[in-house]
Amino acid sequence: MHHLSLIWTFFRIGILNELAYRINFYVQLLQSLLSLGTAIGGLAIVFSHTDSLGGWQAVDILALLGVFMFVGGIIRLVIQPSMAQLMEDVRQGTLDFTLTKPRDAQFLISISQVRIWRVIDIFLGIAVLLTALIYRGLDIGFTDVLLFVLVLFTGGAIIYSFWLMLATLTFWFLRIENILVIFQSMYEAGRWPIGIYPHWLRFVLTFLVPVAFAITVPAEALSGRLTTESIVISIVLSIFMLAFSRWFWKRGLKNYSGASA
């Protein structure tokens, strides 16, 4: 319960910070609409030459795009800025302020920064997803929805753990903020179903940069093509990644020497 109220506090700070720069809202809105327009334009061009792409209909790929925007929005809302802040704090030695607080440090660093206008991407993602589902005639069963929510959570957990591990590397290698760029570049590949890529790229996008579990798998749940195998792997991998990243974080923290050391 206490954690929830802390999350709310950080969100409120995020909102207050951004309200000072209201023009940012319009800039962000314009940028989000532009990237939505680009994505839909790209889809329209591809599907003007074909009916299906690797077995996916246009409307299924639209749903996939919704998931892509939604997950991307969450990453840029809190995960990416918080992890960037962590790397900065380790470099500057200001992580001391977080470590001395009477709450779990991993939890605090994970929500320390909130870029509130990024919720636009999250809302647009939901809108695109709903549009796709309504266009299909809402032919989706209750179990499918439950499965979707389940694999969306496990996918989110995998992505979060992955980011935490990337950011934790900073305890050993101080100047690696560019490593976050790798993720952003690879994430772009997730706007198409992973299945169309050649084996080597599919492997990279599944296990090295786990975009597949966060986007393709949830979208598969919505179009009824989710296999039991994917569900099991998603659950097992998310538990493993959460545990491993937690261990890795604690291991890295031991390496931290503080501000003036």
């Binding site: 490593i179 952003q184 690879m186 590949a189 198409w192």
Partner: peptide
Amino acid sequence: SIWMIGRVLEPVVYLVVWATV
């Protein structure tokens, strides 16, 4: 080199999409 990854991956993605089509 890291910044280059995106500029390599984008054409590869569209290559794959269009080859699939």
